[in-house]
Computed example of a mutant assay.
Amino acid sequence: MYIKKNLKKITVTSDISIRESLDNLNSGGIQALLVINKDSTFAGIITDGDIRRHLLKDGNLETSIGAIIKKDSTIAMTEDENELNDIFKRNKINHIPVLNKKNQIISLAMRADLNNKSYENINSSIVVMAGGKGSRLAPLTNIIPKPLIPIGYSTIVEKIFDSFVNQGFNNFKLIINYKKELIRSYFNELEHSYKLEFLEESKFLGTIGGIKEFSKKLTDNFVVTNCDVVTDINYHKFFKHHIKKEAYLSILGLKKSTKVPYGVLKLDEESDVTGIQEKPKQTHTIMTGIYIINKKALDFIPDGVEFGMDELIEKLIFNNKVVTSFVIEDGWYDMGQFSEYKKLLMHIDS
C-alpha cells in the first residue's frame, strides 16, 4: 500500500490567505491541502472545490485558510490498509490524513493510492496530444495554445494530468508542436509532482502519425488522450478491460443521445409516408478521444506521413486485430467546443 509521506508541498498553516495557498494547491497535484496550526498540529483539510465555493459566494482572496477549512475532517490514527479501506468505504472522500498521538500529520492516504500494488499498469505512459492548433476554439487559440486554456485555477492539460495523478499514474509524455515554446515555458516555471517529458514532432503527422517516432519512449501499453477532453472515469478498469481483451487498441466510448429537432417521416420504397415520429431521440456510442494502445499497433502506422486515428482503427480492423471499446455513460467533457467548455466550467464549480 502506498502512503504519501512527502507532504511539504501540500501543507500550509491556517493563518495564510487563500491567495497565498493557491500556488501550493496548483503544484501539489492532489487538488487538496493539509492545514496545520502554528504548533504543527492538524487543523483540517481543504479542497480546490472548497475554495471555489468560497469565491463564488463573493469570498475574499485575502481570507485566511483557517476560516474555511473543514473542521470535521475525517482522519485516521493508523496506516493499516484494512482500516483505511473501511474509512474510504464509509465516507465519500478522496483523502485521509493520518495523525500521531500528538495530533500531528505523519502521512496522507488517497483513495486511488490504496490499491496501487494491484495495478500492473500504474507506470504506463500517458501520452497527451498537444501539438494541434485548436482551430475550433479560435480566436482564443490564436493567442493561447489549447493545452494552456484556463480551467478554474489551472489549465486544461493540468486537469487531464490531475485526473491520472489522482489514480496513481505519474508518467506523462506531452507531444507538442503549435506554440510549443509557450507550453515549455509554462511547465518549466511550474512545480509539479509528476514526471513530464516533452516530445516534439519533427512535423505535423496527423492525430496519431507522430506517435510512432517516439515508440522507444513508450511502455508496452499506453494511454493516448486528446488535450481538450476531461473525464472522471476509473482508468484502472479501462486498462483491465484492454488487457483482458488482448486488444491492439481500446477506445473509450460514450453513449450520447441526440434529439432530432424536427418530426421525422417514415417512408416506404415509393416515398409514401407510412408514419411519423415526432422529434425522436437517437443514441450512439461516440469516440471520446481517449485510447489505450498496445505498441504492436504502431507497426500499422506508416513512417513520415500524416496519419489519423480513424485510419489506424480501420487498418487494424481490416487486418483482423482486436479493437475494443470501454463504454461509459457520463463524466466526459469536450473542451474543444465552447458549449462543452462552459459545461466543464460548471462541473468544476459544482
Rank of each mutant, 00 (worst) to 15 (best):
K217I: 03
T41G: 08
Q104Y: 01
K259N: 07
E311T: 13
K342Y: 04
E158A: 05
N221L: 07
S339W: 03
K71Y: 08
P302E: 13
G304Y: 09
P97H: 06
V224R: 06
I126C: 11
K245H: 09
E306L: 13
D50M: 05
T207E: 09
V98Y: 00
L61E: 12
R136N: 15
R111Q: 14
G131K: 08
L33P: 05
N177W: 12
F238A: 05
S202F: 00
L345C: 00
K92W: 02
A109P: 09
N319T: 11
D334E: 05
E189C: 04
S27D: 10
V223C: 11
I183V: 14
I143Q: 00
K146R: 07
A130L: 09
V98A: 03
Y341I: 01
L267Y: 05
D15F: 11
E158W: 04
V224M: 12
T225Q: 07
F169H: 09
S250F: 07
L25E: 07
F222C: 08
F169M: 06
L99W: 07
L114M: 15
G209E: 05
L312N: 14
L137T: 05
L148G: 09
H242E: 06
G132P: 08
L25Q: 07
N91H: 15
K217M: 06
R111D: 11
G44V: 09
H192F: 11
S250C: 04
I93D: 02
I45N: 02
G134L: 07
I75G: 12
P97R: 01
K38I: 04
T219Q: 03
F187S: 12
I69Y: 02
V223H: 08
S27H: 02
V98R: 01
L114H: 03
L174D: 11
I176M: 10
K281Y: 00
N123E: 13
F187H: 10
K71F: 02
E181G: 07
N188K: 14
E311I: 08
I30C: 13
S163R: 15
K255Q: 08
M110A: 03
K146Y: 01
K279M: 03
H54T: 08
K101W: 01
K240Q: 14
E269A: 12
L267T: 06
K296T: 13
L56F: 10
I290T: 14
F204S: 06
D310G: 07
E201N: 15
K295C: 14
G275A: 09
A32V: 11
G66W: 07
E329W: 02
N166G: 08
K70D: 15
D303M: 10
L174G: 09
